[in-house]
Amino acid sequence: MKVTQTRKERERSERQQRIIDTAREIAETDGWDAVTVRKLAERIEYSQPVLYSHFAGKDAIVSAVAEQGCAELAAALGDLVDTAGTPEAALAVVVDAYLAFARDSAALYDAIFVLPTELRFGPDAPQALKDAFAVLARAFAPFAPPDDAETFTEVAWSTLHGLATLDRGGRLRPDFRAQRADILVRGWTARAGR
């Protein structure tokens, strides 16, 4: 009985992951408007009721994609922070990597930070969201005083998000990306007297 249950659980988990992966693939090539339960069902050759047995609808699928994306972002940024030699270097690489992630993984970035989802940050957030915020906080905390590190991180993150959104929307000059990132880093480090 346990073997059968374990196999069923594994198969269910694999189906769920296939739905998430396929939604992400469609979104990356055709945009999130192209991701529908019907299109997913056709692409992965499951019936719509099977998809609905895993996810209540598109928002739930986007939420699952966003949660996995947060885990990926946290891992990538965490590795950069861990290998940077100084707080200034960590801040610079996190800023560059975050802005590159927003440009290079547009559909995933939108799932995490732009589209409506069931996910909420804060104390009750899924662990992947907490981990992503914690990595950002590790990069920004050395520059926060005299302010609270988490509040400073929220403001700095909001600034990065705004810059990423304006850049992706074609509202900023693409030739000046590096200079904008440098201005941010210099401003935050100068604030801390570094």
Rank of each mutant, 00 (worst) to 15 (best):
K8E: 10
E9T: 13
E9H: 06
R10K: 11
E11F: 04
E11G: 04
E11M: 14
R12P: 05
R12Y: 05
S13Y: 06
S13W: 03
E14A: 14
R15Y: 00
R15D: 06
R15W: 04
R15L: 09
R15V: 05
Q16M: 06
Q16F: 01
Q16G: 03
Q17D: 08
Q17G: 07
R18L: 12
R18T: 10
I20F: 00
D21A: 14
D21Q: 08
D21G: 02
T22Q: 11
R24C: 13
R24L: 14
I26V: 13
I26S: 06
A27D: 02
A27M: 04
A27F: 03
D30E: 15
G31K: 04
G31D: 05
W32C: 06
W32E: 11
W32A: 04
W32L: 02
D33A: 15
A34Y: 02
V35P: 02
K39W: 03
K39T: 13
L40F: 01
A41Y: 00
R43G: 04
E45W: 03
E45N: 08
E45Y: 01
Y46S: 08
Y46F: 10
S47A: 12
Q48W: 00
Q48M: 09
V50E: 00
L51G: 04
S53C: 01
H54K: 09
H54E: 08
F55D: 00
A56T: 11
G57M: 04
G57I: 06
K58T: 09
D59L: 07
D59C: 02
A60N: 07
I61C: 06
V62D: 07
V62N: 03
S63R: 06
V65D: 08
A66K: 14
A66D: 07
E67F: 02
G69W: 02
A71T: 10
A71Y: 03
E72V: 14
L73I: 15
L73M: 13
L73Y: 05
A74E: 11
A75L: 12
A76T: 15
A76R: 15
G78K: 10
G78I: 07
G78R: 09
G78N: 10
D79P: 01
D79I: 10
D82M: 13
D82E: 15
T83C: 14
T83R: 15
T83P: 10
A84D: 10
A84W: 06
G85F: 02
T86F: 03
E88H: 08
E88Y: 03
A89L: 06
A90W: 05
A90E: 05
L91R: 08
L91Y: 09
A92F: 09
A92V: 11
A92G: 10
V93G: 05
V94F: 09
V94W: 09
V95T: 12
D96I: 10
A97N: 07
A97R: 12
Y98K: 13
Y98W: 14
L99I: 15
A100R: 09
A100I: 06
F101T: 14
A102P: 00
S105V: 05
S105C: 11
S105D: 10
A106H: 12
A106I: 12
A106Q: 14
A106G: 12
Y109G: 03
Y109C: 09
Y109M: 05
D110P: 01
D110N: 11
D110C: 09
A111L: 04
A111S: 04
I112M: 08
F113V: 05
F113M: 05
V114F: 01
V114P: 01
